[in-house]
Computed example of a mutant assay.
Amino acid sequence: MEFLNEFGDILIKGTMETLYMTFASVFFAYLFGLPMGVALVVSDDNHIMPSKIVNRVLGTIVNITRSVPFIILLIAVIPFTRMVVGTAIGANAAIVPLVIGATPFVARMVESSLKELNKGIIEAAASMGCSNLEIIYKVMIPESMPSLVLGSSITTITLVGYSAMAGAIGAGGLGDLAIRYGYYRYESELMLVTIVVLVLIVQAIQFAGNHISKKINRLY
């Protein structure tokens, strides 16, 4: 009871900030990463819209961005973060590097999911007169949806970890609590609770992703 009286409010606030940063980042990462992943697939050789230039440029951008450790990326994009949201600290500021770091990850996850699709389905759709856009939005994405959902749960879990790391530069959330109280003030009890909360969040996301994926898979 004493623990809740002392840390209950900041623990709830930190949890809400972590969830906010994570899911807002997932939304924007998929907003940019989904079309990028689709472009990587369809621009490949022997696909519906082959283009070596597009494929190589996008592949290079994705590989370079993914090569930068997230903690370094957090610091490197501070000027850009200030330009976008007007500040470099807080949950809103953390979303900018989280999106930049997650977008290429999403692109590769989407690429991997779409490449699992049987090419015979795409060829059948093309033979029935479907346009390239119809093949993408009515065939490729719906048929790959179970795998895409699993990929989104992996992405979300990754961003939970990234959001905790962002606490090192004042982003707020559970990572900030762990650093400020667990590391600097030696509040081991609060550190343990933040770890438990993060584990529960990750388990809930993974369970939801698996459950939704199985539901969608039964529809097909």
Rank of each mutant, 00 (worst) to 15 (best):
L31W: 08
R108D: 05
L31G: 06
P97V: 10
I72K: 04
S147H: 05
D45W: 11
I89R: 02
G167H: 09
L219M: 13
Q206S: 05
N92F: 04
G209I: 01
V85Y: 00
K115W: 05
N217Q: 15
E143M: 07
K138S: 12
N46M: 09
I157L: 05
K13G: 02
V196A: 12
K115G: 09
A125Y: 07
S131V: 08
I169A: 03
S112G: 05
V193G: 06
V84C: 02
E6L: 13
G175Y: 09
F80V: 15
V110I: 15
L200T: 03
I64P: 11
A204C: 03
R185H: 09
R56C: 02
H47V: 04
I195M: 14
T103M: 09
L11W: 11
V149P: 02
I216R: 12
A126D: 11
F80A: 14
N5S: 14
N132E: 07
I157E: 01
D176C: 12
G33N: 08
V202E: 03
A125V: 06
T60Q: 04
G14V: 08
G209A: 00
M36C: 14
T194F: 04
S152P: 01
A88Q: 05
A107I: 07
E143W: 01
S152G: 07
P104H: 01
K13R: 12
P97N: 10
L117A: 02
L200F: 11
L11T: 10
E2Y: 14
L190A: 12
S67Y: 12
V106T: 14
E2I: 14
S112C: 02
N46K: 15
F207I: 03
A208K: 00
A204G: 01
Y30N: 14
R56T: 12
M16Q: 02
V77F: 14
S127T: 03
